[in-house]
Design a protein around this nucleic acid. Structure first.
Lengths: 339, 339
DNA sequence: ATGAAAGCGCTAACAC
DNA sequence: GTGTTAGCGCTTTCAT
């Protein structure tokens, strides 16, 4: 049987209150008894029960993390980093993949509540903010990662998606491209629409016309990217460059081009977003807008834990700046004379 | 304030015992009161506290999962699948990335114990089995994933690594290769040594000599694979094919070959292991030995939860059969006449 | 069919 | 400095 505080107390010849005090370093206990109690604890291999402690109103030292998909390289990386930072600070993470399904989100949150997690990290796409509001209403600490809800007072860590989109488009424009398509994820999600807005802004600043026909929406899979890119490439005025709103979509674009016998980057330039491990591995290596995934994971945890500890009155929004990583999937536009 | 069982009880005009009974569907309660209690629970948005329930000896419905690295595509995929299956059965997963560091393992396990997780899934490389033994001694359910300890009575889900290595080598031999190198992970780990053993067995069955100089050990990173492959390719009798013990290493091999101006698969055939998403994305697409990651994740959870529920007296070892997926990184050996 | 009460392991007044 | 004790929210005999 696992030893309890009672076992330790009786073996050390003190009361459980004393043991509790040495455990939490609260109250005053003489150095002598402290040492003896510690000794006994080690002897017995005593480990306090977080469960029991939590029941008296203390922390559970666990955080719930809701992300679309743990197997997605971007989120896996962010999660790993968050896990590391949490561990440093004594917190464990419960991972919940929602597939962007509101029902799953609600379900997971309900479970996490029942388990009295100390806080929740959220990367949700719900258009209505009810999920987040519900959590806030319950007064449980939340932090958003990679997803913005500017109208809500909630800790947030994101990348400046507008700038990201801008950088991508600007890079392509500088390379001489004029027909630049974009494959977006769900445009109802801010991070996605912001990227497109940045793209559009770069276009306009450079005197290029924004063309709706060049903007496609897709789910966030390679397949989706391939499909939509295919449509673009098969259209009358096919683009000479594609800005895909994440690396997966960009890889889909590359595959679609390949299937059509195109040479990259000669016949088509492709820019991705995220800079996941995939970007460095595809052929050609993907030019992409890098999100600092490790930093992001670290920051959310720090924000959330500050919140949990009540060290903060003010909500904070950390907006990181993305960086363009130029690799081999983009190059100067080749003038074919057909436009 | 979150409603408790007391609030529900008083509002429904019954005792907490009654509420508890409708909650757990135990004992006998009249349909009338049952309905009324349920009604009140919904009205108040009551959710039982898992913490409190756990303190009375019931489950916490959470499982700890120790893997080397959550950001590694193989483990991310397995974890995702395990998470899904766990969720179906009402369990949450706490993810712990150990980096194969025994100290971290011990640390995480200690934390998980304090939190009274219902069981632990382990993918450890510790040579001495003390970690596992410790857990078993504490009588907490464990299951091994992707790592074998045949001498221990513990639930396990693995792929037949021997066959995997055999398939890889056999494929290359059939393509006419005779100098086939192998890049292994830590040979102290069974999964790794088994793959090499399978490779060796295929060699010998086909009358090829096993050459120690063609076997390199590496950490499990792209960099490592690249480095070791480089050494092989730069050696006097450089191989015409490389079997890398995981996709990351294989990608390193591809990169090393590229750097040396080699054409794949013409100048070098490469076989990987795992069939992660990376394998389908590199260029050329990687021929690889596929591990059924989704099935594996699902199976460990099922094994572990059966164990948790005490539905099983007998430990079980599920050994899945890997499959060779042939893609573009392997081809017939080109006879250059130099051997 | 329902309730009273003990107890799970711990924390936090409060008393001595 | 140290101990007593009342909870925390729930489960579970055991009466009734």
């Amino acid at each position: 049987m696992k030893p309890t505080i009672y076992n330790v107390a009786s073996k050390a010849g003190v009361s459980i209150a004393t043991v509790s005090k040495v455990l939490n370093k609260t109250g005053r206990i003489s150095e002598g008894t402290r040492r003896r109690v510690v000794e006994v604890m080690e002897e017995m291999g005593y480990q306090p029960s977080v469960i029991a402690s939590a029941l008296t109103g203390k922390s559970t030292f666990t955080i719930g993390m809701l992300i679309p998909d743990l197997a997605n390289p971007f989120f896996a990386e962010v999660a790993r980093s968050a896990e590391d930072r949490g561990h440093e600070l004594g917190f464990n993470l419960v991972m919940c993949s929602t597939d962007n399904d509101p029902a799953k989100e609600v379900d997971y949150i309900s479970l996490l509540k029942q388990k009295s997690v100390d806080g929740i990290i959220l990367s949700t796409v719900t258009t209505n903010h009810s999920t987040v509001k519900d959590i806030l209403k319950l007064n449980i600490p939340v932090a958003l990662i990679a997803r913005d809800m500017p109208t809500l007072a909630v800790d947030t860590v994101i990348v400046d998606d507008f700038i990201g989109g801008y950088l991508a488009a600007e890079h392509l424009i500088e390379l001489g491209h004029r027909r630049i398509a974009v494959i977006a994820e769900d445009m109802n999600v801010m991070s996605s629409s912001e990227r497109v807005r940045g793209y559009r802004s770069a276009l306009e600043e450079n005197g290029l016309e924004y063309d709706d026909a060049l903007v496609k929406e897709s789910d966030f899979t390679i397949q989706g990217g391939k499909l939509k890119s295919g449509e673009l490439l098969d259209s009358i005025h096919s683009p000479t460059a594609i800005f895909a709103c994440n690396d997966l979509l960009a890889i889909g674009a590359i595959q679609a081009a390949r299937e059509r016998g195109m040479q990259l980057p000669r016949d088509l330039s492709v820019v991705g977003f995220d800079n996941t491990i995939l970007a460095s591995i595809v052929e050609p290596p993907l030019t992409t807008v890098a999100q600092p995934m490790r930093d992001m994971g670290r920051h959310v945890i720090d924000l959330l834990i500050q919140e949990i500890r009540g060290l903060k009155n003010q909500k904070q929004r950390i907006i990181l700046v993305p960086e363009l990583v130029v690799r081999g999937s983009t190059s100067k536009r080749v003038h074919t004379g057909n436009q």
